[in-house]
Computed example of a mutant assay.
Amino acid sequence: MPPDSILVLLAQGLGAGLSSWAPGTVASLLFLLIWWPLARLPRPHYLLVVLLVAVAGVPLCGLASGTLGVHDAASVVWDELGGLLLALAVVPRHPGWGLAGFAAFRFFDVLKPGPVGWVDLHLNGGLGIVLDDLVAGGLALVVLWLMVWVRGRGGFSRDGHTG
């Protein structure tokens, strides 16, 4: 297998993006399995992982799209990983919060309101592919942070305890 093929497979979420039904949604659900252990990390370490996923995603998604000959190919889902992890950066490690983050992220990623749509339309290449998902993840993060804040009246620890 040529190196480009291996990188395309990685950009396709090791095959998760090859789903015939809503590949970004299927991959995002599977990426919750990656979030689960990462959610145990101290927040600075978690955010470093998000940054590394995003930075690595720019050339990775750009290469995969170029190889596939389609800008932002539906099968390229690495960008969903970065957006989802960003969205979940403020929630406690709990399956319910994970699903809420998944739903909020997919809402913004699929509908592409405001700044998400602008990035999607105006930025090309790997940067555009990754950045629209990060903006969607950022909007979802704000919604989730508000939900956590309202639920806990101001704060929580990473293990889900409010206070």
Rank of each mutant, 00 (worst) to 15 (best):
D79C: 10
L81H: 04
A104W: 11
V76Y: 03
F108W: 05
H94Y: 10
L111G: 00
L88Y: 07
G66S: 08
V70N: 11
P95H: 07
G82Q: 10
D79W: 10
G96P: 12
D109E: 12
V70T: 15
A100F: 12
F107Q: 02
A87H: 02
G114P: 13
A100C: 14
D109F: 13
A74I: 10
F108A: 00
F102R: 00
E80M: 13
A73L: 06
L86K: 12
H94V: 08
D109N: 12
P115S: 13
F105K: 09
R106C: 03
F107D: 03
F107Y: 14
V77Y: 08
V90P: 05
F108M: 08
W97P: 05
D109R: 11
V90G: 11
L111I: 01
L81P: 02
L85G: 05
V116W: 03
P95V: 12
E80N: 10
A89H: 06
G69K: 10
A89Y: 08
V91K: 04
A87D: 00
P92Y: 05
R106K: 13
L84G: 12
A103I: 06
S65Y: 04
F102H: 03
F102E: 00
V70L: 14
V77I: 05
G66P: 10
G101A: 01
A104N: 13
V116K: 07
F105S: 05
G82E: 06
D109V: 00
V77M: 09
D72L: 12
P92I: 06
G69E: 03
W78D: 05
G66Q: 09
P92F: 10
R93A: 12
A104E: 11
D79N: 10
L99Y: 07
L84E: 13
L111M: 12
T67K: 14
G69T: 03
F108K: 02
G83S: 09
W78M: 04
G82P: 14
D79G: 05
P92Q: 00
A87Q: 00
L88I: 00
A73Y: 03
P92S: 04
K112H: 00
A103D: 01
D79F: 10
W97H: 07
G82M: 12
E80F: 12
F102N: 01
S65K: 10
L85Y: 04
D72H: 08
F105Y: 13
D109I: 04
F107H: 11
G82K: 13
S65A: 14
L88W: 05
D72G: 11
H94T: 09
A89I: 01
T67W: 15
V70I: 15
P113E: 06
S75W: 13
F102W: 11
D109A: 08
T67E: 15
S65V: 04
L85A: 04
V116R: 08
